[in-house]
Amino acid sequence: MNREEIILAIQDIIKTIAPDEDVSNLKTDVRLRDQIELDSMDFLDIVMELRKRYGVQVPEDDYKELATLDGCVAYLGPKMQGKSLKVGV
């Protein structure tokens, strides 16, 4: 998965968790929490969806790596290599 696809993957997960949020205009270098209302419970859901959809494991100590979309791309890039995007599941 390339950068665009990872961003799409995360946006789609956020849409599943918080259907009312507009995810199309998220800035990639600003903390997700500062742009949309996400608490630590929602954050856990991002991690759980990554595992469910892509089989990607994120240990608790690494949650902070996912704070921004850029962070997601950097951290998930290697783990999502060769996987295909699943949206709307």
Binding site: I17, P19, E37, M41, D42, D45
Partner: peptide
């Protein structure tokens, strides 16, 4: 109401994916 996203009811609904 659903606008108050940090309220306990809203958080519960989000976690359970209910509208």
């Amino acid at each position: 109401r659903p606008e108050s996203k940090t309220a306990p009811l809203s958080r519960v609904l989000r976690q359970l994916r209910l509208r």
